[in-house]
């Protein structure tokens, strides 16, 4: 039974290789507008990004990122107004500290920190947006799909844990 399920997981795993999912948390006032500008200008963008609009990067709970990655998102991109340009004056300044903390923390729990990126893009910077998304998407494609956390652990790694001596 378990074997069958594992096989199914690995099958979907290979299937997913074709379809990478990146979650984008974009602030309503700048980056969402920036993405819109990029769209209106018909800049070519990779299609891997699923955008979630947040009122401000100050809304970003680092746990959003952690949860996405645990549940198998392949990448998480957070983007907001440039520091000091926040619509609510200071939201992104709070966010900056949190995101940096998270960025440094992820490797510790064994999650590849390259799967998470935060950046600042304003509403007029369609071109920059295109560049950011393309670069990040390429990076994630290079890293391949993220299995997330499942019950399965590959035997080799499990064994290496116990070979301490």
């Amino acid at each position: 039974m378990n074997k069958k399920r594992d096989m199914m997981i690995s099958e979907t795993g290979t299937q997913r290789e074709k379809e990478i999912k990146i979650i984008g948390f974009l602030c309503n006032w700048c980056s969402y507008g920036g993405a819109d500008t990029a769209g209106v200008c018909r800049f070519k963008q990779p299609t891997d990004l699923r955008i979630i609009r947040i009122p401000c990067t100050g809304r970003m709970d680092p746990l959003f990122v952690v949860k996405s990655l645990i549940y198998g998102a392949d990448g998480v991109l957070v983007s907001g107004c440039h520091p000091k340009d926040c619509h609510y004056a200071v939201g992104n300044l709070y966010a900056r500290r949190r995101m940096e903390l998270l960025k440094r923390f992820l490797p510790f729990i064994g999650i590849d920190t390259n799967r998470f990126r935060y950046t600042w893009v304003s509403a007029s910077e369609g071109q920059l947006w295109q560049q950011v998304v393309t670069e990040f998407s390429e990076e994630i494609h290079r890293l391949g799909p993220n299995a997330g956390l499942n019950e399965k652990m590959d035997a080799e790694t499990a064994l290496s844990l116990f070979n301490t001596k």
């Binding site: 520091p83 200071v90 300044l93 709070y94 900056r96 500290r97 949190r98 940096e100 903390l101 440094r104």
Partner: peptide, 24 residues
């Protein structure tokens, strides 16, 4: 490392994630 802060030492200090510094 990042902000040179240690919790629970100075009662007047603000916890680092409840504040910000634009100059950072």
């Amino acid at each position: 490392d990042m902000l040179d802060y240690e919790a629970g030492i100075d009662a007047e200090a603000k916890p680092p994630l409840l504040t910000f510094d634009p100059g950072e």
